[in-house]
């Protein structure tokens, strides 16, 4: 399994280096702006902050595209032989792909979070006014009895939900692609059918999520924050697991490379 994951990353080495390089550049640019900050020339600092924020989204978008297009291309090309000839079960193979995407997604989220936190700290250090601004903001919010911590917790739980949802969607796309290459392989409509299935499943997922209980509208503490996102997170997790298992089963029984 580890070898399979290794080669999943190796395949994407170029793209990952470019994305990482881009992030590094923007980060350096931001830091440059911070340390050469002059109050009169305020333009580039906010710009670099925007760049970084947009780039964070771009990263996830890229991971999604990578995971999905890689798998799709692979099942249609001869390089799939390389993987499927190895003494691994189809389940191991699809698990390794999902795990690689998971690692990549989580690693990216962690890196971005660390960068965000340190960037904000840098902002405070380099520009004392900013810190006092943040303090003032905090003070205002607290006096209005808006809990700052809860906002942060809310943001964190939103991030976690996003991640789990993101992975669940990836697994649904994997399923559509797998269906197209296996069960539907002899059908002329396989492209349309797999896209239709994807849309149907995503829609279904949305409906089910709406029906899920909302435990705490406004969480008071960390525990409540976690509990409030738990049903949705679990649901997405279950979707992901089911999709991947079905992919494995389909590949095991019906693959035709």
């Amino acid at each position: 399994m580890l070898n399979l994951i290794k080669y999943e990353f190796r395949k994407n080495r170029m793209v990952l280096m470019i994305i990482g390089g881009g992030l590094l550049l923007l980060q350096l640019f931001y830091m440059f702006q911070i340390f050469t900050y002059k109050e009169e020339e305020e333009f580039w600092l906010p710009m670099s902050i925007s760049f970084l924020s947009i780039y964070a989204l771009v990263c996830f978008f890229t991971i999604f595209i990578l995971a999905v297009s890689n798998y799709d291309k692979e099942l249609k090309s001869k390089s799939s032989y390389l993987i499927f000839m190895t003494p691994n079960s189809s389940y191991t193979i699809i698990f390794s792909k999902m795990l690689s995407t998971l690692f990549l997604g989580i690693a990216t989220a962690v890196i971005i979070t660390i960068l965000a936190v340190s960037d904000i700290n840098m902002l405070h250090i380099a520009i004392p006014e900013a810190e006092s601004f943040t303090e003032m903001l905090r003070y205002i919010l607290e006096s209005l009895e808006i809990p700052v911590d809860k906002i942060l917790l809310g943001a964190l739980s939103a991030l976690m939900i996003f991640l789990v949802y993101f992975f669940a969607i990836v697994s649904v796309v994997y399923l559509s692609i797998t269906l197209s290459a296996t069960f539907l392989q002899n059908s002329k409509l396989k492209g349309i059918l797999s896209v239709a299935l994807f849309l149907a499943l995503t829609y279904g997922m949305g409906r089910v999520e709406n029906l899920l209980p909302r435990l705490y509208q406004t969480p008071e503490n960390a525990l409540q924050a976690i509990l409030s996102v738990l049903p949705a997170a679990l649901f997405n997790l279950v979707v992901m697991v089911i999709c991947i298992f079905v992919c494995g089963k389909l590949l095991e029984k019906k693959v035709s490379l």
Binding site: R10, R13, M14, K78, Y81, L82, M85, P87, S89
Partner: peptide
């Protein structure tokens, strides 16, 4: 056909099947 057979069988396809890198 499964994991056992794949470990004992070597197949050489007609096409080029390696990764481009």
């Amino acid at each position: 056909i499964g994991i056992y057979s794949k470990s004992r069988i070597a197949y050489m396809p007609t096409e080029s099947y390696f990764y481009t890198y």
